[in-house]
Amino acid sequence: MSANIFDRRRVNGPPRSVEPLYTDEGDVKPFTNGGRADGRSLDQLRPIFIKTGPLAVQPTFSPTAPSGSAYYEQGKIRISCAVYGPRQGRKSNPRMGSFDCDFQYAPFSCSWKRRPHIKGADEKEIALILEQAMAPAIRLEAYPKACIDAFVTVIESDGKFATISAAINCISAALADAGIELYDIVAACSMSLNASQWVSDCNQAEEDVSQCSLFVSRMPSADEITYLLQQGKTMPDQTDRAVQTCSNSCARVYAVLSRYLQASMEQPAS
């Protein structure tokens, strides 16, 4: 709008406008001075918070409410998941039920440029990854001909592999909240390789400068790894070490998940 146009019908603002003053904090480069930007140690995970049942409509049984839901936070990652089911499936298999997962980034959630409102190939692939990571843990033989649907929405993402791991943890919590029979809760954790050192639970800035990223999802009771994904080059012994360390981190995440789920049962009216 030209500063010279004077609109007599309205109260005009000042004719000249100036850009606000920004204090440039400067990008904090990850791994400067050998430490991490947020002060964590190399194998320290970001703090986790879980709340189950936030999407349930009071009273708990309503035709359109999800059977179970969970809200998950890990550092700056925020994810919400709703589970519907067991309900009539489209592909009805008389031997076992089916598990379907839908994953989407909220338009404001990612730091990288993406076309909003359009489901990209990466979201579709992550949905497949989540299905393959969670399906071994669900007792699908107990739900013949039925299907269980999980819908994951990422409200804020911080690290691609860390977000996928967080989504797995969130779905586990939502399935437990829905009362669906599981063999075990699946816990997942991610790591990245930076200058020959494995760093646990990296955020986006740290992942961007790493040579390789990896995440592992694990069922501790059966001691089974339900999913493993590595992207980037490593020497074989590095991968072995990473899988070991990551499995141990998964055990810690599992402990946190169990504690939160137990606490949610103890206070039913929250």
Partner: peptide, 11 residues
């Protein structure tokens, strides 16, 4: 002899 990617499949 470097590992470039590992991906698990199967449900």
């Amino acid at each position: 002899m470097e590992i470039c990617a590992i991906q698990k499949g199967g449900m």
